[in-house]
Design a protein around this nucleic acid. Structure first.
Lengths: 149, 149
DNA sequence: ATTCTTGCAAACCCTTTGCAAGCTA
DNA sequence: TAGCTTGCAAAGGGTTTGCAAGAAT
């Protein structure tokens, strides 16, 4: 609806890419991260991801994990959310369109949930009070069946 | 509805206070902070609050601000929320019962909004997937009329 | 007098950045 | 070869904590 993300630079209407953006090269690390994220169904912090990859014997630096995640997020390939204690958690979601999450605060297991009514409500409330460039954050945290006592 | 906050220690059914908790003494700093928060209608970070108080000539340490805010939050006297970039922002809300916020991402000006449907929706979604101890985070960010271009 | 509070500085943690070396195209 | 990518270590920024000095009861 509302364009919440104004492009920083112009994009070529033909290719949809930014002509001014630097060329992108592929790398083992980024491929590894992408593969890892694809097989995950939980939200994980950058540190978690780094630790997991290292544990598997992969060689990748923490800074690289952060940089790669940042790029995936910018490209819209990965979702980010802030855990209640302020850490950023990442996840490659199955649903490409706007949605929310039901996240287990213990293991990160996540269920994607959509709710158009909430979005409409947010837009309405904002408009009623003269706010623009609306963005709403809706996350549900809980303890999943597996982690429950 | 659901008891989302299990008490860490037992509370005396008579007084409603925790017998094991240390005695609480009043202090100039805490009174000042409380007064400051009461006159504010915007969400502010601990750093902002500290800067504001210092600018007014008040003498109070940053650590004290953090500790005092933490206590107010624990007591349920102040609301906290995470800004999109991970900082904690505090505000003494007028509405004592559960509610959400429409926050200006520039100046922090806030409008308290209630929406029972969202809460019920969250509970329902969580229950449907076997999650317990549900907690939902719903915040709407935007640019208020005053900060808008 | 007791012990809760404060301040400062150091410690913590997550995240970002500088820069030289490595690798992709 | 050109220049994007990586790793490491250092720097940043917010928040917490240790500890001795300062208050409140």
């Amino acid at each position: 609806m509302t364009s919440t993300d104004p492009p920083m630079t112009g994009t070529d209407p033909a290719t949809g890419t930014d002509p001014a953006a630097p060329a992108r090269r592929r790398s083992r690390q980024r491929d590894t991260l992408r593969a890892y994220l694809t097989e995950q169904d939980t939200f994980r912090t950058a540190q978690d991801i780094h630790a997991d990859l290292r544990a598997r014997g992969e060689t990748i630096g923490l800074a690289t994990v952060y940089r790669a995640l940042q790029r995936l997020v910018d490209d819209g390939d990965v979702d980010v959310l802030r855990t209640p204690d302020g850490e950023a958690a990442y996840r490659r979601c199955a649903t490409p369109r706007h949605h929310h999450h039901l996240v287990c605060r213990d293991c990160g297991r996540t269920v994607e949930v959509s709710d158009p009514p909430v979005a409409r409500w947010a837009e309405q409330v904002a408009r009623d009070h003269g706010f623009t460039d609306v963005e709403h954050v809706v996350e549900v945290f809980g303890t999943c069946a597996g982690c429950g006592s």
